[in-house]
Simulated scan of single mutants.
Amino acid sequence: MQIQIDVAMDYALGVDPLVNLAIEVARTDGQDVISDTIAIDYCTVTRVAGEGGLGTRIWADVTSPRMVLRYQATVDVTREVSALDTLAADPRQELPGDVLSFLRPSRLIESHSFLGFVERRFGHLSGGAKIAAMRDWIEAEMEYLPGSSNATTSAIDSFASRQGVCRDYAQLMCAFARAVGIPARCVSVYGLGVDPQDFHAVAQVWLSGGWHLVDPTGMARPDHMAVIAVGRDAGDIAFMETETPADLYYQSVSVMSVA
């Protein structure tokens, strides 16, 4: 499936004009970038590799008090999707070294705190069937409520409040998976069908020797997503980071299928 992405951003910057951006679609397995362009007014751009070598991050050194940006891309999503319940959990001793770190708790994903709950609730299941049940539980139990969380909200906070947005759903999914010994990481994507359209966060779990996308909000299918970046938790996949506060003038994200 081909999708078109159109992002427009306009921010007033603080005293530090250096901005870190993760908005370009990654060139990685399961998706081919047919074309993409980015324009940032009055800016010098430096690119560095993203987490684990997946995707790129942009250092934008803006010489204006405002950052005005436009990003457009056409992506052919070729990702094959397997039913989760057909996938197996890999023994820990067989996990690749670059996957092991996604078994551990992180600052915003306190997976060690969920050991008792996930055993009581999902202990009768295994592998991908367990992940599918976790995904369904989160979608059913959480209320999608914009404004109910912020950049410091952790998986424990979301579990307690049962409210959040996509980043909170993804972090809770990762917390559950890591608690049962299944590596999981947070992923930023452009997702067809996401409502309201925005930068979207999902989870990715390691099963049967590979990474598999899981959206516990239920809004986007893995074969309708274009991956941007991955990380330990939502803090690693923020689309924009600044050292000093930036004020939003305007932002829009559009993801559409190509007829």
Rank of each mutant, 00 (worst) to 15 (best):
G164E: 00
Q251E: 09
L125N: 09
G164D: 04
R120K: 15
A220V: 15
V25M: 06
M67I: 10
D198T: 06
S158R: 00
G218H: 02
L95Y: 00
V189I: 15
D233S: 07
P146C: 08
M1V: 14
D223W: 07
H224R: 13
R178V: 08
S161F: 11
L213P: 04
Y144L: 08
S149C: 04
G53W: 01
V227S: 03
Q93V: 11
G235V: 14
A12Y: 10
L13M: 01
M67G: 07
I156Q: 14
V15K: 15
G128C: 01
A259V: 10
A88K: 11
R221M: 09
F199A: 04
D32K: 07
D98E: 06
E141H: 10
D16S: 02
P183K: 07
F114H: 09
D247C: 09
V81E: 00
V253P: 02
R70I: 10
D198S: 09
S101Y: 11
T78G: 00
V187H: 07
I237S: 06
E24P: 02
I23R: 05
V214S: 07
Y11Q: 11
A89N: 03
E80N: 13
S161M: 00
L84V: 01
A49F: 12
A129W: 05
G235L: 12
V25S: 05
E119M: 11
R185F: 05
V165E: 02
N20C: 13
I5H: 00
A220W: 02
Y169I: 03
R162F: 03
L95M: 01
I138C: 13
T244Q: 12
P146Y: 00
W211C: 03
G191T: 10
Y42I: 12
D136C: 08
Q197E: 04
D41W: 08
V45W: 14
S188F: 02
K130L: 14
G52A: 03
M9C: 13
A133P: 12
S126C: 14
E94V: 09
S111F: 05
G52I: 01
L207A: 04
R47F: 14
M67T: 08
R232C: 11
I228T: 06
Q31E: 04
R178Q: 10
A73I: 05
P196S: 00
E110P: 15
R70C: 14
A220L: 06
A73E: 04
S82H: 12
R104V: 02
A177C: 11
I156E: 14
V202E: 03
R107C: 04
G147I: 02
L192I: 06
G191K: 03
R27D: 13
A177W: 06
A8P: 14
S254A: 05
A22Y: 11
S188H: 09
T63D: 15
R121F: 06
G127V: 05
